[in-house]
Amino acid sequence: MPNISRDEVAHLARLARLAVTEDELDTFAGQLDVILQSVARVGEVAAEDIPPTSHAVPLTNVFREDLVRPGLTQQQALAGAPAAEDGRFRVPRILGEEA
């Protein structure tokens, strides 16, 4: 049975890019614990040989031909951008992989 600590909530929040507050850590820890204990009930079902369902309708091989379709103009693409510069989306400095 899960037992979600504050630290685990903090870890999940980091993975999910949520700058949660200290208060939220406490609230969420309690709530997630209750919810996860409840949903863990799926484990009661004996399903060893049961195949998982990822798609509700069993379709396969749906393709598009390799044909160009009109897209957006640069102006349309950037219209919703919080900031733009030189035809590009302007974003804060990126803490990249490369040091």
Partner: peptide
């Protein structure tokens, strides 16, 4: 998607 893949186009002109 149906956006072209040409190298070197003006930025954000091959998007949808």
């Amino acid at each position: 998607c149906g956006c072209p893949t040409t190298f070197g186009a003006e930025p954000n002109t091959q998007v949808c």
